[in-house]
């Protein structure tokens, strides 16, 4: 295509978890504005492989903005300059010919770099393990319509449940806080009647795990909400704080009873 863009990329390269990394410059020539950002990286990588170079490792999978696997810092913004858009859905028409683009991995103590732009986000899974679920073993459910849920509650639960676990909130937060991620799950489940029995236990244990993973605290900068490709609101964080406070005030000791049954 004649209207191809010629760009300069500054990309973080790091051979492995313990290797030292550095920014390396690449020329990306004749890039179609119709390409997605990751397709642009594909093209750069294909050329690198063909010329005997070492392709840039980056995480990606669905390429339609829902799996949450992709995510890099693009010119200082998580997932790049477009609101409500993951890196895979960001298109090169957002950039101009001659632009310089800085590409870095998510940076947080809780997200150690694996290679180049790939980071380890297993901390987010462990936060879910700490209580981001409703204990309803298969087979134990009553009829789906037995418990009516006000539409607004269901809608608000869905708003929070839209989280794709990409980690952009952590990446964009000046404190590397995982509060938006954690609170989105607490809010999703806490809005639903099925989530009530474990609600306060969940708030305490998920927050404890979030801290344990080395994420920072929330200072309400609001950067997470802006970076979130799914538009999750910091109202979730308010909900988490409220649940946490209430849980702390009302927590009772669990009695251990042996030999029941």
């Amino acid at each position: 295509m004649s209207a191809g863009l010629n760009l300069t990329l500054h990309v973080w390269r790091q051979a492995g978890p313990n290797a030292a990394g550095r920014m390396v410059d690449y020329k990306a020539t004749d890039i179609s504005p119709e390409m997605s950002f990751l397709e642009m990286l594909d093209v750069v990588n294909e050329r690198l492989i063909e010329s005997g170079g070492d392709p840039i490792a980056f995480d990606h999978d669905c390429r339609e903005g829902i799996c949450g696997m992709c995510g890099v810092m693009i010119n200082g913004a998580a997932h790049g300059p477009m609101k409500l858009t993951t890196a895979c859905q960001l298109h090169m028409r957002t950039f101009k010919d001659g632009d310089e683009i800085t590409i870095e991995p998510w940076r947080a103590a809780g997200f150690p770099v694996v290679r180049d732009l790939v980071v380890d986000r297993s901390a987010l899974d462990r936060i879910i393990q700490a209580g981001g679920y409703i204990s309803a073993p298969t087979g134990s459910a009553q009829d789906a319509n037995a418990l009516p849920i006000p539409k607004q509650d269901a809608d608000e639960a869905m708003d929070a449940a839209a989280c794709i676990g990409c980690g952009a909130c952590v990446a964009a937060c000046p404190n590397s806080s995982a509060s938006l991620f954690t609170s989105a799950k607490i809010t999703h489940l806490g809005k639903l009647p099925q989530g009530q029995p474990e609600r306060y236990r969940r708030a305490l244990s998920m927050v404890a795990q979030m801290d344990l993973e080395g994420f920072g605290g929330c200072t309400l900068f609001g950067e997470c909400q802006e970076a979130c490709p799914k538009g999750i609101s910091i109202d979730s964080i308010t909900q988490m704080n409220r649940d946490y406070l209430w849980a702390s005030l009302t927590k009772r000791e669990e009695k251990k009873v042996a030999g029941a049954g």
């Binding site: 409703i134 309803a136 298969t138 999703h188």
Partner: peptide
């Protein structure tokens, strides 16, 4: 039934 019990926020009527 199972999914609702797990907290899947299916669309609902008023």
């Amino acid at each position: 039934d199972q999914c609702v019990a797990q907290g899947v926020p299916f669309a609902r009527e008023y």
